[in-house]
Design a protein around this nucleic acid. Sequence first.
DNA 1: CGGAGCGATAGACATTATCTATTGATACAG
DNA 2: CTGTATCAATAGATAATGTCTATCGCTCCG
Lengths: 303, 303
Amino acid sequence: MNLRDLRYLLAVVEHGHFGRAAEVCGVSQPTLSVQIRKLEALLGVTLFERTSKTVAPTIACERLLDHVRGAVAAADSILAVARGLRDPLAGQFRLGIIPTLAPYLLPLIFAPLREALPALDVEPWEDQTASLFERLRSHELDAALLATGGSNDEPDLTSQPLFAEPFIAALPPEHPLAAREVVAEEDLAEDILVLSEGHCLRDQALAACGRSGAMGGPLRAASLSTLLNMVAAGYGTTLIPGLAAGAAQDAGIVLRPLAARAGRTIRIVWRARFPRRVAVEAVGKVIATRLRGFAEGAAAGTI
Amino acid sequence: MNLRDLRYLLAVVEHGHFGRAAEVCGVSQPTLSVQIRKLEALLGVTLFERTSKTVAPTIACERLLDHVRGAVAAADSILAVARGLRDPLAGQFRLGIIPTLAPYLLPLIFAPLREALPALDVEPWEDQTASLFERLRSHELDAALLATGGSNDEPDLTSQPLFAEPFIAALPPEHPLAAREVVAEEDLAEDILVLSEGHCLRDQALAACGRSGAMGGPLRAASLSTLLNMVAAGYGTTLIPGLAAGAAQDAGIVLRPLAARAGRTIRIVWRARFPRRVAVEAVGKVIATRLRGFAEGAAAGTI
DNA sequence: CGGAGCGATAGACATTATCTATTGATACAG
DNA sequence: CTGTATCAATAGATAATGTCTATCGCTCCG
């Protein structure tokens, strides 16, 4: 069965005349006659009672009409909805973001995203790196903002760097290192506090100060916010990402630039075959633009 | 857009695999690939994210899925409903019947019709001849039981005689003619009562007794039932159709066979192009069979 | 690095739709 | 009652579309 023939059928019902129905459908009258006959053969039902004067739908035809109209309407709605889905810069866009980035980056990019891509409905999803990779692969996310990778160790995923985020030394006010203008990464190694496992920042912070393992004990913060509170309370030092500087200062923490300028690169990652690459790149561009010049200021301690 | 392609789409969504979906659809894998691509081009939307491992529907595709399923379901329902409409001996059958026949014939044929054509839903419609012709022509009726015609004066209609219905003289008990065994039609002419205009029986009764006009006054019965009451009350005589004999006797009327055996032929009439001719003929056959042998008995006064 | 699995592509072929021209039936006017 | 007009049906040619087989290119995996 063909939707075209169903439209022919409706046209004949509406006009009660093969010739005029054909004209409306943009085909010749014989075409309509033939197709209607085929439809009748397929359905096993006579659809019209034809005379040289009138073409009247049979009772069977009338019984079918609602269903026919339903099918045609559904088909039309497919076309209509598809038309609304054509724009790759419109509709849902599920963006994963790591927890050490989300609370500090999102407030900065929401407004620019809304301005630059008003039709794009960006839905943020906060989760740790490994989980974001999973969700990317299972098509639950369209893209993710991560601080890892960049190499080609994920062949099915593509990424693009958006901005560099320097780390900053975070010290309790009474800490000896707080007296210095610049802090060497290695000097933090001794009493550094880190996030719980699974946070990429944990590994990066340890790597930056030259430690391979983590310090023991229960003092592994589950969130960066908790970590800041712990530092402020004098439990130790830490490295924080540049965008968290404001929150750290609010917590009463002393910030110092790092001697070797350790940091991380925030990248946007997506499936290589994701068809709305333009949306990914548009979102990436908005973020990169918003964060332009941030790295230098943050690294220099200018918050 | 094509329903076939929508089914292909659903198969790919269901199986997440072009090859298996193709197998299910009974076509080759390239066919499916091509048709899906065409559909994507038509809709302007990428429907699947393909890798060598997986075929995942895009968000746009998921947004469309409900509508696609709706269209396919509607198409299937067309086929299903049509299947139920295939039998010409099933479904609605609107049968017009003239008022001087309906109340006496219907009780006789309901049971046989239900037995012989259990799936046929015969809907009787009582109206005068002219009105039945109109409704036949406007497709409001599928067939009609009439006592007129039979010739080819209605080129767009066809008819078939079902049974002969003799007229019977109906007399008040005290009427002089009631003394006779057989009444001559002409003897009724003097004080015959007839139905109001529009009833074919009126003209036929007048013609049978050799009168062209009707008798004046307010005594034109609107229904045969009224006419019988009037005769019983002694207002005059009349000719009644044989099937009404029972009702006439119940009213206390004396019945006598007619000398010249005047009568009418009941025919079933339908549009020449009506596609369910088999249904018409089946109904006609049931009626004719039920009334077989009736004419002789009625004419002889054996009720 | 080679084979297996998968979707995409190319080109031949088959099916289906559509067209023009015509027929046959019917209604209407002279 | 005959010619004309109208309409759907039919025939045959042509165009459009779908489908097939064979093959490619990519990716993953041993």
